[in-house]
Nucleic acid binder design. Sequence first.
DNA 1: CCAGAATA
DNA 2: TATTCTGGG
Length: 340
Amino acid sequence: MGVQLGQIVSPTEVPLDSLKGKKLALDAYNMLYQFLATIRQADGTPFTGDGGEVTSHLVGLLYRTTSLLVNGIRPIYSFDGKPSPLKLNTLKARARVKERATQEWEAALQAGDLPLAKKKAAQTSRLTEPMVADAKELLDALGVPWVQAPSEGEAQAAQMARRGDVWAAASEDYDTLLFGTPRLVRGLAALKHSLRDTGSVRVLSAEEVLSQLSLSLPEFIVMCLLIGTDFNEGFQGIGPKRALKLAQEHLGFEETIRRVGGDPATLKEVADLFGNPPFTPEYRLVWTRPTPEKVMRLLVDRHGFEEARIARTVEKLGDVDLSTPPKPLQTALDDFEGRT
DNA sequence: CCAGAATA
DNA sequence: TATTCTGGG
């Protein structure tokens, strides 16, 4: 879920075309969970292969990845590793939500309420080890790089962007901003476009966000700690609005925390996690042609996808330009940043 | 979610 | 030809 910043940040809408030739580090779990939530039948049943194994995430990953590549975007997927102990409460809470949603899904089915059933089913999504292994194997077969983060995939993506290895981190959550990304791309979940509307995504520039809010990055992090993150609970009666106001008083870390009755020592640990998150420098940003036989073996032979359909999809990648432009075209956002 | 068929 | 619906696994 991540920190709730939707109320107080305003993204810039940019045409999809402006991402052409750019490398993006994608939060793989964020994306795979979205596929698992949405790619379901009317009654909420996920797609499965012959053996009953869930395949919704592979459907989504295949089509999303080809769509990105055809649009000239160079994705690298960042997979979650071991969660921080600080996240255990959040994970337990999510597990409880899933248990309840599973019961409510069944109840909705009994009542014959399909829309409700699908909505509840979406909340039951689980990403298992074999499912993750399949996703990585599919990326390998497609010639798309991925990296195994030591801990948070979002932190890994953010650090890659901070080091300038990729143009931006991409996730629907805002946590990459806390993890220090200079840019966050949202809205890759709706790439579909027509002739008049050529598609667009939302970009958040960290520099722009901070200057709009009149906050330093450490103050921004404190604000988020007040609101609550996946790694700490937040405070009763403090939402985005009040947290922003308090952070804007520039009282410093300890005093700001004390104002809401929090313990600076405990929260310092969370602030450090955001400010200096674990990541690995061992990743290779190399995109190659897909290996159709590998894609076929995985999706058709092992998971029962329709051969002709997959062949058609992989074919589209044949004439994708995989080179990285030495001098990327300047976008409106780059121009804006250049002046600030 | 995306692709392709159906539709108007 | 652009938009809506349905099937995919």
